[in-house]
Amino acid sequence: MPVTLVDDPRPWRLLLIIPLAVSFVLFAFPQAYFIAASFHENLGYGRIGEEWTLANYVRVFTDPLYVGSLLRTIGLSALSASICLAIGFPVSYVIARMTSRRKATLVGLLVAAMFITPVVKDVGLIILLSQNGVVNQALSVFSKPLGWLGSEAGVVVGLVHFTLPLIVLLLGTVISTVPLSLEEAAHAHGASRARVFYGVIIPIVKPGMIAATLMVFNLAMGAFTTPALLGGGRVLTFPILIQRSVILDVDYPFAASLSTILLVSVFCLNVLAGYLMSRQGRFRRMASPAPAAVSTFVKKAA
């Protein structure tokens, strides 16, 4: 008779088969399908040819519209991720170091803000940023009205607005892994406020900080609603071009090749960042914001 182990994990692993099957059907299969579609010819009216071809990719990389759009998307996403980091870090630091009951309220508001659909957020921004909106009225002392809507600046504002709650939550988890006593030890041994920040906090949270910024960057790379509404059709980011070739041109293989390029470039940029990070030397007690960590941060606050 085989010995039954009380701690045998194998029966429980069987439960994983269901989520595995679901993700395969909903994620891996369609993904594989559109990647395959990108290597075929468009026959018009949504039909896809039989022949294998690289023509779609040649078209993307020889047309300045698409190359320019890819670079613009990367640029705008990087810019908004950097702005998010700069604005988000101090906010998350303050929240992470809070001990009062107000912390729970603030984290709750952040989570709520994160789940508001970008459409709603962008409508608000459109009102604020319009020609005679509040922002232009406030700036009227210094300059004539600025055309926020339909400009790259407007899109960046929208992307920052869209991703800021997330980066604050992510950074909050990372910062709360740094014990306050480390800061106190640094102060006690002669470090100024700035030295504590750049010499202690930043080096310790750096891996987590980069990971959080990358997540925000990835969200911005794939964002459609915000550039569509705030760009007003004049800021052509990659997701907007994908949508156009699907809806306006009904060119599925070409849309698929654009999607594949977006997917691969985001993937490559993340791998590159990870590689640069790992070259930074030995990191101890690595602080990185896993989704589970976010939920414990939220729980702790509550």
């Binding site: 014990p179 006593s181 480390l182 106190e184 030890a185 640094a186 102060h187 006690a188 041994h189 002669g190 470090a191 100024s192 202690v200 080096p203 310790i204 990191f283 101890r284 007690r285």
Partner: peptide, 20 residues
Amino acid sequence: TPTQKRRLGMVFQDYALFPH
């Protein structure tokens, strides 16, 4: 006087060594 100008040495219960 701010902490950093007091010329202190301090030892904490959780050691508080800089992990990096």
